[in-house]
Each structure stands twice: as structure tokens, then as C-alpha cells.
Computed example of a mutant assay.
Amino acid sequence: MTGPVRSVSQAFAILRLLGGAGASTLSDIGRGVGLSPSSCLNLLKTLVAEGAIEREGTTKRYRLTRPWQAAEALRDHAGARLVERAGLPMEAFAQATEAAVGLWKIVSRDRMQLAVRAESDAGMRLSLADGQRQPLGSGAAGRAIAAIQRATDAEMARRFAPVRWQSALSFETYARQVADAAVRGYAIDQGFTHRGVWTVAAGVPGVAPGYCLSASIVAGSRSEAEIAALGTALIALRDELAVPAG
């Protein structure tokens, strides 16, 4: 038995992404579905020719055509399901690790927003504010998202530029940390975004418009080995949430 045709699967991934994220640029789509710019452009041209998507003249963004906007199957509910089922596992994780845990969602090309939060009942604990937003490039979450999206150096630089780091951080170091995150599966921010706070984050693959889990602790409260264990546990939580409840 032959498997699925890769190009067809990629085309439907693009359609689902546009159904969930709305009008998007070529680079945003390519990162979202894991395609090179040239491969993505070829698929986009085909989808335009078939009348499934259209290109906005002024913004040069791609969007579903009106008939395809009405297709319920292309309304990507994966993100909504992820948010719905994240609460209890995140609470259990926060209690077990005594960390402030967040599920972040990309809400624009420049910002992410906290969608779900959980914290332990430890006497000394960190807390995240409901619905808070932060620049897309900031924190461990920004590094983890860039890693899982395989962002180019130019895109990383664009995201990095507006971030106000509380501790000095060069772009070269930032880019190296993103590369490290791509290898091990989680990113680390040790007080660069917020002094006194260390954060570990793992991107959630395959869910538009982009999600990331983070776990924040008091700086210096864990050893290097314990930080690595927290990152590994966060990946396990991400994988648990990625499997729909039966």
C-alpha cells in the first residue's frame, strides 16, 4: 500500500493554516508548515490557480477564497482543542515542578499571548498574569518558537530587535540559543527577559497559528541537571497535550 502524496498533504496543511490563522505571508506560511520558500511558493501558486486561495494585492498576503472560507473542515480547531485540554495537565505539572506554567499562542507576526496558565500552591512561587502579551522574539518561548519554526537569521533578527532585555544579550548569542533549542527540543532563558526568573520552553509543532509551553522558576533555584530534567518533562507534557483525549 502506498502512503499519502506529500505535496497534497502539504497543500492541505497550508489550507488548514490559512483557515486558522487568516491571511499570512509566504514566509509565515512556509514556517508554519515547514517548507522552504521555493517549495511553498510553488504550492501557493497551484492553490491560487485552483481557486482555493488568493493573494491580497496591497499586503501580498495569502488567504482562503470566500467559498473555501466556508469549509468547516479547514477551520483549524486543533488550537482550540489544545487550549481546552491543557488546563488540568498543566496544573498537575505546575504542582509537580513548583513552576509557573504557561501555554502561549501567536496572535500576530510580532506578538504572542498567554492562553492558559497554571501555578503550584508552594509558599514561594511565581505567577503569570492572565492574557499577558509579549514580543514574539522574547523569552524562552520566543526562542522555542523560532526553533520549531526553523526561522531564518533575518526573521530571528526581526523578532529580536524590538525586545527589551533586562540583561544584556547579543543577537549572536540569541541565535546560538535558538540553534541549541532546535537540537535538544527546549529553550532556556536565564534572567535575560526578567531578572530573577529562569524559564524553559518547548514549541508545539503542527498547530496553527503557533503555540508554546513554558515553565518559569526562581533564578538559581535549580541545578543545571534539574533544568535539563524540567525541559525534558515539558517536552513530555507537550507530547501529552498533542494527543487528543479519546
Rank of each mutant, 00 (worst) to 15 (best):
Y174N: 02
A228P: 02
L43E: 08
F192M: 10
F171C: 08
D153K: 13
A245R: 15
H77I: 14
L234F: 05
A94H: 00
S167V: 11
L230C: 05
Q149M: 14
G210H: 04
V107D: 01
G102H: 06
R176K: 14
L82A: 00
A182L: 10
A13G: 09
T173I: 11
L44D: 06
E50N: 11
R61I: 07
E50M: 13
R222C: 10
V243S: 09
G220K: 03
A129M: 15
S127G: 13
R164W: 12
G191L: 07
S216E: 01
P205K: 05
G57W: 10
I29H: 00
G137M: 03
A179E: 13
A118D: 00
S138E: 09
F12S: 07
G220C: 00
Q190V: 10
T97D: 07
L103M: 01
S24C: 11
S127P: 08
A23H: 04
A179F: 09
R66K: 15
D180M: 12
A157M: 14
G102Q: 08
A154V: 10
R164N: 15
E226Q: 15
A99L: 03
D110V: 12
L230K: 04
V5I: 15
A175D: 04
G51S: 04
R125E: 04
L26Q: 10
L88C: 12
A49T: 12
T173N: 12
V83M: 13
P67V: 02
A242Y: 06
L126G: 02
A92I: 08
R176I: 06
A71C: 15
A99I: 01
R81P: 02
G137F: 04
V197M: 02
A225N: 08
A71Q: 15
P162G: 06
I227C: 02
V83S: 08
V178G: 00
S36A: 14
A92G: 07
Q113P: 03
Q113W: 05
M90R: 01
E56F: 10
G3N: 07
S120L: 05
T59S: 15
R195M: 12
S214M: 04
V243A: 12
L230D: 04
D153S: 14
T152G: 08
N42I: 14
R111V: 08
R133D: 10
E84C: 09
L103Y: 01
R143C: 09
D121F: 14
V33N: 05
K60T: 13
A11T: 09
A49P: 06
A96D: 07
G20F: 00
D76Y: 06
R61K: 15
Y186V: 05
Y174H: 03
Q166V: 06
A141N: 03
G87A: 12
E54C: 08
S9C: 13
E172W: 06
E224V: 09
A201V: 02
G22N: 05
A13Q: 09
V200C: 07
R195H: 11
A11G: 11
P4L: 08
A225S: 11
E72H: 13
A182K: 11
T193F: 15
S27A: 15
E50W: 11
S170H: 06
P162L: 04
P135H: 08
S24G: 05
S170P: 04
L237R: 01
D76M: 04
R31D: 12
A118P: 00
A228D: 10
Q134C: 13
G231T: 03
G87L: 14
L64Y: 02
A80N: 11
G3C: 09
A187S: 04
